[in-house]
Write a protein that binds this DNA or RNA. Structure first.
Length: 894
DNA sequence: AACTTTACTTAGGAACCCACGG
DNA sequence: CCGTGGGTTCCTAAGTAAAGTT
């Protein structure tokens, strides 16, 4: 399985000879590109490989071997280089087709380029190839980074997309126009609404905000359109506010709240409102909806005007009605709208503020804290912190001196002077009863009666409905983390110097709120005030505070399904796609830079090579002593690598061993090109092991350079690019048209796995893995036995049927036959499941799926092969990637 | 400062198991 | 013997919050 890896980006343009390594492995295998198609067989072999991989945990390297084998990387490189050179001129836009070719070359290199490569290979490349193979690297962490965005990039890249969009939009606009007239009429009819809208029209924009996410009111629909249609249709304009009406009646109080809000907010402007709508009967509602639509349209037009003029403060008139429950069939297709101008994240934002955790409830009298053997009553403040520690006593954390020391230090700060005097030794503290108490509490929680659970669930939903959504530019959007982080002990990952410190309880006075000036501001809890209420629409957060452990800012932001997050995500993939058209050129540049006279340039070029080839993270500098000692590419130290002139028959091998993000160990042996190797030797000269390997380099220098090479390019883009590219290539390599759906899904998972290996998203094998596997194996065995028996039965029935020729026997035989078939299908399914599980033992697919793989690749694949999207993306993922599910066609290419 | 990426924890739900009643 | 329903078990998905990048 595993194997994979890597890609090699390498490109050795220049010299094919060197051979960079590169190849991406296919799932387990590396497949060389050329053959890719044929290679299916190879792919199968991969599987085998996969099995091996199990051991991977121990050594990553082993995995890599697989990948490398194909290689021929050198060839590939060469090919790439050739192409690149030829294509180099290609503009970003370069047709996808051309780009595709290139890509293929890159990754696998092997496939496409073979012919070309072959030439090169024959001669010099062989060595290289070997080396590359050996490298096998597994890429562990890559550099990640934000994709960020470069607007420009997006734009350019998107352009094509946009075009399509535009087309659609035009159509819509037409509709609108027609509808608009209607709207007007409606407006007239209903004065209330109209009033609101008008405001808008007249001068600025008025956005109506409706609570829901749906763009109900959207403009586009003509009157005749039914509500449904309305819902489904996305507003073309940027924000169209809608009001919803929704069907769903809110709980009474909610409705009230909403109304109040609305009225309040509107009051300034107009008022009127129709909040009452909730109460209105459906028929009426629909009418209203129509009206609203009209209104929206108006708004839009007004918006447009605004835009033209200027958008100073546009007032939005929100109406809120929160309707809870929403079936949410309505989807806001923001991706079909025009984008706002740069820097403006929203025009109208209203929310309820974050939810604070409940205050501390002192322990029951029966639960005692003991110090030095005797019961000691603590003040509530002290007791609370003792409780935090008590929950950890069975955890490894409490065996770490740093954790205990930090805890004691902070605990003493909350003690009274008497307590402080008494409690001087942690080892004399007995937290057992507290621990048991909390265990019991969670136990009791699980054992709640059905009614209690139901009640709790309802309460939670009510909270979610009240605090979990905001109104942004007329749409109801889900908030990601509306609960303020509760107090507790800081759990750093890895060897964090601050582990065990007390994370303080936050009060509203610590929290800053961000919302529209014209919205109803969130109310702080009774008796409290916010630290500040600001109205900054150039940022996406709704609330922020400074956390006391590291002094970092924390934010309340929207859920990944929101427009704001989705757009950013989309932009990220567009930047990565853009890199596809520049990568060969960039590789040529850094290869050339290996020879630079300037040390700084050479370091930069070598670092970039690692980032491209191994998907290392950028590696920012960190404050020593404040965080765990982890590194990325630019922050690598001499002690993190070893150079081997020759190892295991490979030349110029670099051995990495360091702790990356989250203190996850990265170990890998990679054959590199000679020039890189020589450079590394020079970088390490006269340095101590704790000195920086790239002492003339940091992430800002690197990113600045990347920015010059391609707009919007940063170190992390390479990860996204290589990950998505690998997925696409692997999918086309592994998927066979004739496979049943289960097999196709297995292929998908294998492609996903190749990416996880590339990005080094490994996981510890689940603790119960063995058991689970045993159980599965057992099931398979049983199933086989059942099938055996069923077949026997079937044969008997067959014979009887033949002998007697009776109808009844015939039916019986058919029945048996069918049951055998069913059983065999079940068996296949189980076997596939077992294979998948085994191959996935130490690989985490989630992270790459969520953060690195362009969802349009997956969606296109599903559409092309008729695989239900639900088989690949769960509900959350479908919500997050709704834009991709909607826009990607079967022929989408990354 | 503002985001994205990441691992880990927990809640929730489906699958499973078993006793009981028809 | 089968169906039902309640209780478990197991696994996935949602949520939390730390740790990266830009």
């Amino acid at each position: 399985m595993d194997g994979p890896v890597h890609h090699g980006p390498v490109a050795n343009h220049t010299g094919i000879t060197n051979g960079g390594s590169e190849h991406v492995l296919v799932n387990g295998h590396n497949s060389s590109s050329d053959e890719t198609k044929r290679s299916k067989e190879g792919s199968s072999s991969k599987h085998h490989g996969s099995s091996k991989h199990s051991g991977s945990s121990s050594s990553h390297n082993s995995k890599s071997k697989h990948g490398s084998s194909h290689s021929g990387s050198s060839l590939n490189h060469s090919s790439k280089s050739k192409e690149s050179s030829s294509s180099s001129g290609v503009p970003k836009e370069s047709s996808s087709s051309s780009s595709k070719h290139r890509d293929d070359k890159h990754k696998h290199s092997s496939s496409s380029s073979k012919s070309k490569d072959s030439r090169s290979k024959s001669s010099s490349s062989s060595k290289h190839k070997e080396s590359s193979r050996s490298s096998s690297s597994k890429p562990k962490d890559g550099s990640s980074s934000s994709s960020s965005s470069k607007h420009k990039d997006k734009q350019s890249s998107d352009s094509s997309k946009h075009k399509d969009k535009h087309k659609s939009s035009h159509k819509e606009s037409e509709r609108r126009s027609s509808s608009s007239t209607l709207k007007v009429e409606n407006i007239k009819q209903e004065p209330k609404d109209s009033a609101l809208d008008f405001k808008v029209k007249s001068e600025t924009i008025t956005i109506k905000t409706s609570v829901k996410d749906e763009p109900i009111g959207d403009e586009e629909m003509p009157l005749n359109v039914s509500t449904n249609s309305i819902k489904s249709e996305p507003p073309k304009r940027k924000f169209v506010p809608s009001d919803d009406e929704d069907d769903v009646p809110l709980s009474m109080r909610m409705a009230h709240v909403k109304r109040q809000k609305i009225s309040a907010s509107h009051a300034k402007s107009k008022h009127v409102d129709s909040d009452d709508e909730d109460d209105i009967p459906l028929s009426v509602r629909t009418q209203k909806i129509k009206k609203e639509k009209h209104k929206k349209e108006h708004d839009i037009s007004s918006k447009v005007k605004k835009k033209v003029t200027n958008t100073s403060s546009e007032s939005v008139s929100p109406k809120k009605k929160v309707k809870k429950e929403e079936p949410e069939d309505h989807v806001w297709k923001w991706w079909e709208e025009e984008k706002k101008e740069e820097g403006v994240k929203w025009r109208y934002l209203e929310h309820r503020g974050p939810l604070f955790s409940p205050s501390y409830e002192p322990l029951p009298k029966s639960v005692h804290f003991k110090y030095d053997g005797s019961v000691m009553k603590l003040r509530p403040e002290t007791e609370e912190v003792a409780g935090f520690y008590a929950r950890f006593i069975e955890h490894d954390y409490t065996t770490k001196p740093a954790f205990n020391q930090n805890f004691v230090k902070d605990w003493r700060k909350v003690m009274s002077s008497e307590e402080r005097q008494t409690i001087t030794d942690l080892s004399k503290c007995n937290f057992r009863e507290l621990f048991n108490h909390y265990q019991q509490v969670s136990e009791d929680r699980k054992n709640r009666s059905k009614e209690q659970k139901k009640k709790l669930k309802e309460e939670n939903e009510a909270i979610q409905n009240e605090y979990g959504f905001c109104t942004m530019d007329g749409y109801k959007q889900k908030i990601g983390n509306f609960r303020i982080e509760p107090p507790g002990l800081f759990r750093g990952r890895g060897d964090h110097p601050k582990m065990g410190m007390l994370k303080k309880r936050l009060m509203p006075e610590d929290v800053m709120i961000n919302c529209s000036k014209d919205s109803e501001f969130p109310k702080p809890p009774p008796g409290h005030k916010w630290k500040e209420v600001r109205h900054d629409n150039s940022v996406t957060w709704l609330a922020s505070w400074t956390e006391n452990i590291q002094g970092q800012n924390k934010y309340v932001m929207l859920n990944p399904s929101s427009k704001l997050k989705g757009e950013k995500d989309w932009q990220k993939y567009e930047t990565a796609r853009k890199l596809k058209n520049h990568v060969e050129r960039i590789r040529a540049v850094y290869r050339e830079d290996w020879k630079s006279k300037e040390m700084k340039t050479r370091q930069r070029a070598v670092a970039l090579y690692f980032i491209d080839k191994l998907a290392l993270r950028a590696g920012n500098e960190k404050e020593e002593g404040e965080t765990a000692d982890t590194v990325g590419c630019c922050s690598l130290r001499v002690e993190h690598i070893k150079l081997h002139e020759e190892v295991d028959g490979q030349e110029c091998v670099v051995e990495f061993d360091f702790l990356g993000k989250d203190s996850i160990r990265y170990q890998n042996r990679v054959p590199v090109e000679k020039r890189v190797f020589k450079n590394l030797q020079r970088f390490m000269e006269n340095k101590r092991k704790e000195d920086d390997l790239f002492d003339r380099l940091n992430t800002s220098i690197l990113n600045k350079h990347l920015q010059d090479l391609m707009e919007g390019l940063t170190a992390k883009v390479f990860r996204t690019f290589n990950a998505s590219k690998t997925l696409q290539d692997q999918l086309s390599l592994l998927t066979k048209a004739e496979d049943p759906i289960t097999a196709k899904i297995l292929s998908y998972n294998r492609a996903n796995r190749a990416v996880a290996l590339l990005c080094n998203h490994q996981r510890a094998a689940p603790k119960t893995f063995g058991q689970q596997m045993d159980r599965l194996t057992e099931k398979i065995k049983e199933k086989k036995l059942v099938i055996k028996a069923a077949k026997k039965d079937m044969k008997v029935a067959k014979h009887e049927y033949k002998d007697t020729g009776s109808q009844g026997k015939g039916n019986l035989y058919e029945k048996k036959k069918k049951s055998v078939q069913r059983l065999e299908e079940q068996l296949t399914k189980l076997e596939v499941q077992a294979t998948d599980k085994e191959e996935n033992k130490e690989i985490a697919l989630g992270t790459s799926k969520l953060n690195y793989l362009d969802p349009r690749i997956t969606v296109a694949w599903c559409k092309k092969w008729d695989v239900p999207i639900e088989k690949i993306y769960n509900k959350t993922q479908r919500d997050k990637f709704r834009w991709a599910i909607d826009m990607a066609t079967p022929d989408y290419e990354f």
